[in-house]
Simulated assay, not measured.
Amino acid sequence: MTLRVLAAMSGGVDSAVAAARAAEAGHEVTGVHLALSSNPQSYRTGARGCCTLEDARDARRAADVIGIPFYVWDMAERFDRDVVQDFVAEYAAGRTPNPCLRCNEKIKFQALLDKALALGFDAVCTGHHARLADGELRRSVDLGKDQSYVLAVCTREQLAHAMFPLGDTTKAEVRREAERRGLAVADKPDSHDICFIADGDTQGFLADRLGAEKGRIVDASGEVLGEHDGAYAYTIGQRKGLRLGRPAPDGRPRYVLDISPVTNTVTVGPREALDVHEIHGERPVWLGEPLTAPYDCKVQLRAHGEVYDCSAVPVGDVLRISLHAPARGVAKGQAAVLYDGDRVLGSATIAATFSASTVQAGA
């Protein structure tokens, strides 16, 4: 069946090959590049596969080679509100957000898809490395490039109008195919940094928007060990850059254990104090039938992070995830994505974490 397909073209090799495959499959494909900044020079520069002026030009050239119509859509205001401002607000609240996850949720599979459907398109095609099989979201065959984690915030209704042509292909194969197709982006490097932080200085970016606010760095007993200029500059599990006045009595390194925006306090302690045995997630999104009883599965707690055996069950509006072995450095604000094999069951935003002692105490 021929579909009207809107291909989101970032300017990178993945989205270019995905669009080419959709066109080759006989679909009526139109390419679109999303302009995400009203002042592109305020974002990073250079062709990096997403979000720059050079990337827009690369996307247009790829569309010309493929032979499909191409447009640039201005989504700067929506991106600033739903991704950039959300990023700042989450850090201010003591959480560690994933802006790429939020961009997929709010921009590519909400704003873009809504507009595409309103214009009569049947599906949105992207270069994500993930698979859709019988309506289910599954991991890519290239586990090193798998992006099912950042897509797990999408709803079943959104995925019903999604197309991921690269899920059965490794990244090396994508590059070779791009070269065969004459796409100039075949050797273009992947994008790894945050597109709206031009110099990569996240701490400086946050300081400009949140301002300096001195606070205390304490240990678990409350003893003051140092001072900081803003709790937002720290993340759970951080070891370097703590600027402590003195070493631990046993000489072992300290790590960030907790961030309290209310008291503007950062708590540090030994590495083993980072162990998390239970996670509570909020705003669960189910890609299959919602769980109604404890279910043994696996959970991934950050993009390209380790996967843990667990038991998960909804309790009211909270998804409770009990880990079979402890995880370390679990940050509130990240997504907890549940898997059954390579199939995504659902996701939730990490709202609270508990050690073995607090779990046993009935937390």
Rank of each mutant, 00 (worst) to 15 (best):
L3E: 14
R4F: 03
A7R: 01
G11P: 00
A22S: 01
T30W: 01
N39H: 14
T45Q: 11
G46S: 00
R48E: 09
T52D: 00
A59C: 03
A62G: 03
G67M: 02
G67C: 06
Y71K: 11
M75C: 09
D86F: 14
A93W: 01
G94W: 00
G94Y: 00
N98L: 05
L101V: 15
R102E: 14
E105M: 11
E105T: 13
L113P: 01
F121Y: 15
G127K: 04
R131L: 10
L132Y: 11
L132G: 04
A133H: 15
G135N: 01
D146R: 04
R156C: 07
Q158C: 07
H161M: 00
H161R: 03
A162T: 03
F164H: 05
A172Q: 13
E173I: 04
V174H: 05
R181V: 06
H192Y: 12
C195G: 08
G204V: 08
A212W: 14
D219Q: 03
E223A: 15
E227P: 02
A231M: 15
G237E: 10
L242C: 13
L242H: 14
R246K: 15
R254Y: 13
L257Y: 02
V262A: 12
N264R: 13
E272Y: 08
D275Q: 14
E278Y: 01
E278G: 02
I279P: 04
W286Y: 03
P290I: 08
A293Y: 10
Y295L: 12
D296R: 15
R302I: 06
V307N: 01
I321C: 02
L323K: 02
P326C: 03
K332V: 15
Y339R: 10
D342V: 09
D342N: 09
R343L: 12
T353M: 11
T353C: 12
S357T: 15
